[in-house]
Amino acid sequence: MIEKTSVLAQPGRRAALPIMVLLALGFVAPLLAVVGFSFMPARTFGLWHEPTLENYETIFSDNTYVSLFWSLGLASATVVLLALICYPVAYGLVRVFGRWSTVLTLLFTIPLVVSENIRLYGWVLFFIKGGVLPGTLRTLFGVEMGDFLFTPAAVLFGMVYVYLPFMLFPMTLGIAMVPNQMREAARDLGATRWQVFREVELPLSTPGLMIGSLLTFVLAVGAIAEAKVLGGQRIIPITHDIEIAFTYAQNWPLGAALAVLLMLVVSVLVLIVLRRFDLDQILGKR
């Protein structure tokens, strides 16, 4: 008798079936619907029209590239700035601040329980004409602050502020993974503090930096509130383009095509980075 080699022959696979079905319905199906919509004629609301590439043609023939440029550019700048800001802070949390680290960690995490929009509106009140900062500068020092709110710089500031914890905590873990013995051995062998940092600590804490950077980039490229609230829509990121297509423009197929384009671009960029830096390898699993 020939034994059936059904996919569900193994108990583990059968046990995984409910969650696989749930994922298929809740995760894959909506994605497929978005992909399907992107091939529907513009401004239609069903999935059963004759497929067309017109939405993709529209994207490549109009000025959508401007939005994509802003999203990718701001996300990249956010990652670079956060890497520079967070490394010393993470280093301090792991090696310098001692018992104060817990308090500082709490200070970094507590704002996360407050809605992002509310925090950004808080910054509006801080930077707005006559607000906390310009008002204080004028009253105490007679200095008039130039325009900052409703500029691209304010958008970048907001993104750095919002995504800081997503870079900081993986980086903290990365630095904590560097064994003290390695640093001590390097020092015993005559390395300077700079050499210890450059040759031992930085390479060994790279997994934290990489995971933080990927996480921050993927989140930041989908940012929208910062450009709307702090930037006063001076710039339109691609996520805002998608929102407009799904709301005022009522062009779900165009919105879906923009979403697919964004997913593809981000996936390709992430894959390139992952190919360049093998996470399994740097985490020491192989």
Partner: peptide, 18 residues
Amino acid sequence: KKVVGDIATMNQAMISGE
């Protein structure tokens, strides 16, 4: 224009003199 935003942003910007 100086800013595009929601009602709260418009009112806040008018009150502050932006």
